[in-house]
Simulated assay, not measured.
Amino acid sequence: MRDLAVRTLVRTSRRHTAHRPAPPAAAADHHGGIHLTVHTLPGADGATTPLALAQATTAAPTLVHRHVTSTATVLLALLTSPRHALGTDTHSVGALVRLMLGATPAQVAPALAPAGRTSDEHWIVVHGRHNPGRSTPPPPTGDDPAQLATLGTALGTPYLSIDGPGLRALIPSAPDTRPSAPAQAADLGWSLGFSAPAAAPDLPGADRQAERALQRAIAADAPAVVHSSDPLSLDAIVAPADAQELARTRFAPLDQAGSPGATVLLGTLRTWLNLHGSWDRAAAALGVHRNTVRHRLARIAELLDVDLRDPGVRMELWFALHWLPDDHRTHP
C-alpha cells in the first residue's frame, strides 16, 4: 500500500506547476487477493506535505464505495489543507477587514495569495450557472458548506460564492496560466466561464470576461468556456465610450416599460438571445413559463420598435447588450 501511495504521489507531483495545485489522482492495484486503492487529496496549496487516502478491501469497490471515497477525499482536503481548513483562514479574514476599512483589492490581494507565491499574483475569475436540465438536483440556496467545499476543492480555491443557481470564484494563478474546467463541476451540473488571468486592479474587466464566457458555455450547452482575446474583434475597432452610449440609447425606451421593469426585460432578452431564440430553453433558464417569455419579448419589440424575427435586429441588440455599462448590466 505504501509503495502504491508513493508512486501515485510522485506521478501527481510531476503534473504540478509552480502556480497551481496538483490535480487529484487515483491508482489501483491487486496484491494477494486484496484490492488496493489510493486517492491523492486535492486542494493542496503547495506549502504542505502531499497526502493520500489509501484503502485495502477484499472485494472490488462498487459505485457506492467510489462515491463515498470521493466525498471522503473532499472532507479530508478541508481538514488537512491550511487554505481550506475550517475556521483557520486568518489571511482571508484579515483581507476582509482591510477591505471593509477602505483598502483596495490590489492592496489586499497579496494576503490572499498561497504561500510561496511571488508578488506578481494574478487571478482567474470564474462565473457559473447550475443547469436545471441536468439530472443533478439544484444547489441549495445560500452558502451551503457541502456545495462550497465540493466546488472549492474542484476549482482549487477557497474564494467562491454560491447564490442560488449562480456561482462566482477567484482562483490564484500565474500570468500565463490557461484555465481548465474540472470534471467534478460538470458532474454536479454546473456550466462555467473562465476569464484570462488578471492582476488585482484589472479584476472588473476579468469579471466581464468570465460572464461572457459563461454565456457562450450556456448557449453551446458546454461544461465550460475559457475567454480568448481576439485583436480583430469588434470591441477593438469601436471606442468603448461610443459603444456604451449606443447601448444606453438603444435600450432607453425600456425605462417606460412598467412592470416587470427594464431590468427583468433586459435579462429576458439576454437569455433568449444567448439560447438562439429558443422559447423553451429561455423559459427553463429563467424559471418562468414560456408564455411569460413570449409576452416579455413582445413588450420589448413594441417599446424598441423592432422585429425580433430579423437576424440583423438580433445581432444589433446582442452587441448593445454586450456594450451595456456595468451600472445597467443584468444577468439571467
Rank of each mutant, 00 (worst) to 15 (best):
T57Q: 14
D207E: 13
T49Y: 00
D326S: 11
L192G: 00
P137G: 09
A186S: 13
A185L: 02
S259A: 12
A206G: 04
L75M: 09
H35F: 15
T49F: 01
S233N: 10
S191F: 07
D305L: 12
L167Y: 11
L36S: 02
P204W: 09
G128S: 04
A239H: 15
A183R: 13
D255M: 07
W272T: 05
D207M: 12
A154Y: 01
R15E: 14
N291L: 13
M315E: 15
L303D: 03
A154R: 07
W318S: 13
T73I: 11
A54P: 01
H322L: 12
R281F: 00
P240K: 06
T80F: 14
P140R: 09
T12V: 15
I237M: 12
P158H: 09
D255A: 13
A26G: 13
T71I: 04
H276Y: 11
E211N: 01
G261L: 00
H122R: 10
R250D: 04
A113D: 05
V264G: 09
R294W: 06
G312Y: 00
A196K: 07
A183F: 03
L99C: 08
G205S: 08
D29S: 12
D176T: 15
P165Q: 02
T104K: 10
V313M: 02
D310Y: 01
G152E: 07
W190E: 05
R314T: 10
L321H: 01
S92F: 10
L63K: 10
V225M: 12
V74E: 10
T57M: 13
Q209D: 11
P21V: 05
